[in-house]
Design a protein around this nucleic acid. Structure first.
Lengths: 155, 155
DNA sequence: CATTATTAGTTGCAGTAGCAACTAATGTCA
DNA sequence: TGACATTAGTTGCTACTGCAACTAATAATG
């Protein structure tokens, strides 16, 4: 093995780099669409998506489901509340806890975004066969599970 | 097909979301390592990596190779210059253009990071067989090429 | 039941991202 | 050669990220 193959790093072929570039490109594609058509950031949309799936989640629930850090979440929720896309009801039994849900306006917006999102996902993945899609999805999931355990090993 | 399957979006199964979570988790793993051991951001490390591969690149070359936006690049380069990890020589023939390269200190740091990076990549990918690694790499590349063309279609 | 720990959510702050406007140098073309 | 366009790189400004400290409420323990 030539010495260079371990002493020089070819960034373009470095897996985490490739993954990051791909992911960022795709994220910014979706970010542009959500921003242009609905003036929503990806974070804001993710919150709405979770509330569409799981109405009456608390901020903490949303944070756990989406991995959004709680301060970021708090500020994003404020904006969604201001725009009356979501509403908040504080719990009677636990006054810290709140229940978040989409307002009627929020549901309208949500109902527009969902099919658009699926259509964009479809366009994005139409470079793959059904088999490749499944493959990719499985590999990605495996990688995520694995990566999730690594920090514990490092500590 | 039940109506809900198109009217509700299951975020956890939405491909761009899965990709983003995986990529971000892995990026932050590497970011932590580069930061803790070398006080470098991923952006700074990428610049050094490119200069290790392609000495005497200009800032603009680096920008094209890494997709790093030029203002971000400019500030990152300043910091690397301050720390004397890289050096800059302005071209005689074109006074706008500069040639960047690693200093001796930069080369020392680079030589430490390269094997560490490869080792981390290895650890990250050791959940995969050789075959799966190859598969994943091919699929990721295909996706990137495809995603790269999409914005032109949208416009 | 009083002290302490934990939890939900907010806010302060410092660092980074990225667009846009800018400077300075070079290229183009009548 | 002189007006205009382009290119390399920097800087201003605003928004977002994310850690840490904070408030307020509830849970746990002695």
């Amino acid at each position: 093995m030539p010495k260079n193959s371990v002493n020089i790093l070819t960034l373009e072929q470095f897996f985490p780099y490739q993954l990051s570039l791909s992911s960022n490109k795709i994220s910014s594609l979706f970010a542009d669409i959500y921003h242009e058509k609905f003036a929503l950031s990806i974070t804001q949309w993710r919150i709405m998506a979770i509330l569409g799936e799981y109405p009456d989640s608390s901020a903490d629930d949303v944070s756990h489901k989406t991995q959004i850090e709680k301060s970021i979440l708090s500020r994003a929720i404020s904006k969604l509340l201001q725009r009356k896309l979501i509403q908040r009801v504080f719990s009677e039994t636990d006054k810290r806890r709140s229940m978040l849900s989409l307002t009627n306006t929020g549901i309208e917006v949500y109902s527009e975004i969902v099919p658009l999102s699926y259509a964009c996902e479809e366009t994005l993945l139409n470079c793959f066969s059904q088999d490749e899609k499944k493959q990719f999805s499985l590999l990605l999931d495996k990688l995520y599970q694995h990566a999730d355990q690594l920090p514990k090993i490092v500590d």
